[in-house]
Design a binder for these strands. Structure first.
Lengths: 163, 163
DNA sequence: GCAAAATTTGAAACATTATAACATTTGCAG
DNA sequence: CTGCAAATGTTATAATGTTTCAAATTTTGC
């Protein structure tokens, strides 16, 4: 079983980010999509945080590094990243997170910790299948699934300080 | 099999609304919760629309009937209704809809039609179970599930006019 | 009943999230 | 290098949600 970097477990975060960026560049190259500096920087910020990041958080971060962007700049970059499956939007938080399964065909399930805000993205074929069956039973043509689970991650369960 | 009123099928809508209100009153009575006039009116408006309704839609409706409420009035009523399981919030739409399983222990799955905006709420134990298992496999303590499926309802699939 | 306490509602201001509209710049094909 | 399309900049505004404090109402203990 391949070792997967759980967000709430220590890992080499820089490597994790640069790996995600390399993946993104490769994906965009094969799709003839332009991962421009702004788009790449937004993706990098999202990955560096490793937690769901609001559009205005990103905006503020860009501001501190001299790039005084307006909201549409960030939203457009996010739209692009969403379109190519490089980030996901967490509807229940109005926030965005890097996709850990970029390039793979998948429907994400998100486990969102209420304490530390870390998010674990799962690819859960059984869950997807059950949902697809439920939709089919109602003759409903399924386009998209939003599945977000709120709760407490393993680390915070055993940790009163909840960093 | 009991006949269920599908939102995208013709049904006696007045009866459907008054039934939901009667249920709500009963539920509040047993729980010693106060279904005040504002709360009841908000619930009624949500049921009458039978589609997801934004908080500001509700606000506007209250306005047209002389009750010039401010946003907190509506949000407080919605909080109450959510707390007692009388309405659900649809995170992907920032909107609210009447719960068709009020009083029952359930986790809702919502099938949201992109054409007509109607929403069908399903109680899907198999789906819930699969999600619970996925969370348990990650030692994640599950508190709440947001499961929203966007697509096209049966009626709109066979109907180009898409009323 | 009645006064104190708690809950609910009113009202104003404000915070956050997202988009519209239009101008400007950049990248690219011919 | 020219013209078109895509991307970005800029300003303003829309849509959604919250904080705060005051007033009214309901409940409760006596």
């Amino acid at each position: 079983m391949p070792e997967r970097a759980l967000p709430y477990r220590p890992h080499n975060h820089d490597a994790c980010v640069s790996h995600a960026l390399a993946d993104a560049r490769a994906i965009c190259r094969t799709q003839n999509a332009r991962l421009t500096p702004i788009r790449e920087r937004v993706l990098e910020l999202i990955w560096q945080s490793h937690k769901p990041l609001g559009a205005y958080d990103i905006l503020a971060m860009l501001g501190t590094e001299g790039h005084n962007a307006a909201p549409p700049t960030v939203y457009r970059a996010l739209d692009f990243l969403l379109q190519y499956g490089l980030v996901h939007r967490i509807a229940s938080l109005n926030a965005f997170i890097g996709c850990t399964h970029a390039g793979e065909q998948h429907r994400g399930t998100f486990l969102i910790c209420r304490q530390c805000s870390n998010v674990l993205e799962l690819a859960t074929p059984e869950v997807s299948k059950a949902i697809e069956q439920a939709a089919a039973a109602e003759s409903f043509r399924l386009d998209d699934i939003t599945l977000e689970v709120a709760g407490i991650c393993p680390r915070c369960q055993g940790d009163a300080s909840n960093a």
